[in-house]
Design a protein around this nucleic acid. Structure first.
Lengths: 124, 124
DNA sequence: CTTCGCTATATACAAATGTGCATAACGCTC
DNA sequence: GAGCGTTATGCACATTTGTATATAGCGAAG
């Protein structure tokens, strides 16, 4: 019944990626999630619900996203049949895909180096 | 004198790396900076000053660092000739180096993918 | 045995960030 | 034009995170 320290759980490197311009973030992980759910639902409020963001936070996030790039990533409409909606622009789709691709590359780099990291940080 | 939007500043991907265990962070970027300055100065308070961390924050950070791993990363002594001090253990040195190496790999992965990212997110 | 500089720790405060709720405006449908 | 669901926005509040400050305790050295 030996049980020393917390050996048994392993150390895992994690990374968070974001895009900056002029030293301010114009696309974060949360932002990408939001874009994704807007693409999936066609609605900002529904996207917020699914992500358990407050609507206000989602709206401000979206505002930053749309303001940070040369072209808007999301087009919103107010009123109308279903009350309104939000959809990704073609540019928004491209940015989202590029961000996710970059994330995958970063994850891959970490996975590649993980054995060396574990070896180097083995106690003793 | 055309000047449309903010074209002229470029979008740059950034990444933050940290190490988790049981879903809690046991080494962050700030933590690595702290280890580095402890290694350089032999003092927690001096390290905090250099990094412009409040001593309290530095101390709590260090507490988390030392508690998160199977072996302590930093050994502190209190009292004595110079009042006390803090020095990295051999294990601490190895962990710090491994973390910085991993960071370099992540940065390299980003740099490698940067052209493709810029191409994909070019407006139009 | 006093002094010194550092670690160790508590308490009160400040700033940033996010939540919850209220409300307005909009445009289709009935 | 009343009703509906959504975007758009303000405001009061809660939570988180860090700062500032004060104090105790330690151990070598004079």
């Amino acid at each position: 019944m030996k049980r020393r320290s917390r050996s048994g759980s392993s150390t895992t490197p994690r990374a968070r990626l974001w895009i900056e311009r002029d030293n301010i973030s114009i696309l974060s992980d949360d932002g990408a999630d939001l874009l994704e759910q807007i693409e999936a639902t066609g609605s900002l409020s529904e996207a917020a619900r699914r992500l358990r963001f407050s609507y206000r936070r989602a709206w401000m996030l979206l505002d930053d996203l749309n303001g940070g790039w040369d072209n808007p990533l999301v087009r919103t409409t107010v009123g109308g049949k279903r009350g309104g909606g939000a959809t990704l622009t073609d540019f928004g789709v491209r940015v989202l895909r590029a961000f996710r691709d970059l994330q995958l590359q970063v994850e891959a780099a970490i996975d590649l180096e993980l054995p060396a990291f574990r070896r180097a940080t083995r106690p003793g």
